[in-house]
C-alpha cells in the first residue's frame, strides 16, 4: 500500500496548447503539503482543469516540472502513475456497462488483487461513501441519481487507497442541497483518510468551505494568490482577488471560525448559541433578535460563557 498522503510540487510548470498564443497554465509554482486539500479556484478558462490534468499526465507538460513526494512525474511509468492517483470528474465517467461494484473495483482489478479482496474493498468503500453495498452494488450507473453516481465516482477513485486525489468540479452538476451534503461528507471522510487532494471548482464559497489552502487563478493561467482561506479573505493580494472573493468577504471570513475558538466572557443572558456556531451565524442571530450579547452553550445546552457584538466583529 502506498503511503497515505503525498506532497505535490508544481515547479515553474507551464502548458502551451499547440496553436494558442497564450499559455493555459503559466509558470505555476506551488507546493501542496501532504494530507491537505488544495482548492484551485478561478474564473472559467483560467487553466484550473489544465493544471489538474498535468498531474496525472492526461495533458503533457510543456515546461517546468511536477513532483510527487520528490519524484518527477515524468520519471514514472504513466500507467503506474495514474493508478496511484484517484481521479474524479464532474461528468463522473462511470462505466455504464459495469455494475456499481465493478466500477469501484476497476483499479484493484487492474492491479490484480484477488477477487474476494476486491469485493470486500468495494463493499467497504460503498459504505464509506454512504451507499448500500448489497443493494446499490449490483445496480448499473443509469439506475442511480446524480448524487449517488458522484459517490460511486469517489469510491472508485479511492479504491486502491491512492495517496493523491485529483477532483475536477466533482459536485458541479449536483443541486445545492445535495452538494452541501456531499461537501460535508467529503470533509468528514478527509478527517479520516488524510489524503492529499487537488480540488478544482469555480465556486469561491465551495473553495472556502473545503480548502485547507486556496490557489486563485486568473485569466491566462496565472496564479494570483495561494494561501489559507482566512488569509485570502482578510488580505486579498490585489483587486482581482478581492473582487473574486466578493464584497462580502468579511462575512465569509466570519463563517470560518466558531464561537468556541473565541475567548469567552462570563456567562450572561441573551439569545443562545452552541460553541460550534460560526461567528457569521452568531452575528445573524444578534441582528435577528435585536440583541448585543450571545449566550454560548455547550452541547448539553448549559451556558458556559458569552460573546459581545464587538467581540464578533473585533
Amino acid at each position: 500500500m502506498p503511503t497515505s498522503a503525498a506532497e505535490v510540487v508544481f515547479d515553474k510548470a507551464t502548458k502551451l496548447y499547440p496553436g494558442r498564443p497564450e499559455p493555459a497554465v503559466d509558470d505555476l509554482s506551488l507546493t501542496v503539503p501532504a494530507g491537505e486539500i488544495c482548492v484551485l479556484v478561478g474564473p472559467s478558462g483560467s487553466g484550473k482543469t489544465t493544471a489538474l490534468k498535468l498531474v496525472n499526465r492526461l495533458i503533457y507538460l510543456t515546461e517546468g516540472e511536477i513532483r510527487i513526494d520528490g519524484t518527477k512525474i515524468y520519471d514514472l511509468d504513466v500507467t503506474e502513475l495514474r493508478r496511484s492517483i484517484g481521479y474524479v470528474i464532474q461528468q463522473v465517467g462511470l462505466f455504464p456497462h459495469m455494475t456499481v461494484e465493478a466500477n469501484v473495483g476497476t483499479v484493484p482489478r487492474l492491479l490484480g488483487w484477488p477477487k474476494q479482496r476486491i469485493r470486500e474493498r468495494s463493499a467497504e468503500l460503498l459504505e464509506l461513501v454512504g451507499l448500500d453495498p448489497a443493494q446499490d452494488g449490483a445496480r448499473y450507473p443509469a439506475q442511480l441519481s446524480g448524487g449517488q453516481q458522484q459517490r460511486v465516482g469517489l469510491a472508485r477513485a479511492l479504491a486502491a487507497n491512492p495517496p493523491l486525489m485529483l477532483m475536477d468540479e466533482p459536485f458541479g452538476a449536483i443541486d445545492p442541497i445535495v452538494r452541501a451534503r456531499l461537501q460535508d461528507e467529503f470533509l468528514r471522510l478527509q478527517q479520516e483518510l488524510r489524503k492529499t487532494v487537488l480540488f478544482v471548482t469555480h465556486d469561491i464559497d465551495e473553495a472556502i468551505k473545503i480548502g485547507d489552502r486556496i490557489a486563485i487563478f486568473r485569466q491566462g493561467g496565472k496564479l494570483a494568490q495561494y494561501d489559507t482561506p482566512e488569509a485570502i479573505l482578510r488580505r486579498p493580494i490585489d483587486d482581482f482577488v478581492a473582487e473574486f472573493v466578493g464584497a462580502d468577504r468579511a462575512l465569509k471570513a466570519l463563517a470560518l471560525r466558531t464561537l468556541g475558538e473565541l475567548e469567552l466572557g462570563p456567562p450572561r443572558d441573551g439569545p443562545r448559541a452552541t460553541k460550534d456556531t460560526t461567528l457569521r451565524d452568531a452575528l445573524a442571530l444578534l441582528i435577528d433578535e435585536h440583541a448585543d450579547i450571545v449566550a454560548v452553550t455547550d452541547a448539553d445546552g448549559a451556558v458556559v460563557g458569552s460573546v459581545t457584538r464587538d467581540d464578533l466583529l473585533q
Binding site: E80, Q91, G93, L94
Partner: peptide
Amino acid sequence: DTLEAARGTGLTRVQTFTRVELPL
C-alpha cells in the same frame, strides 16, 4: 468522459479498447 475516466484510472490503450470501448 467515460474514456477520460478510463485513461485517468490507468487503463492502457489496449485495456481501454477491450474493457470499455468494445463492450460499450
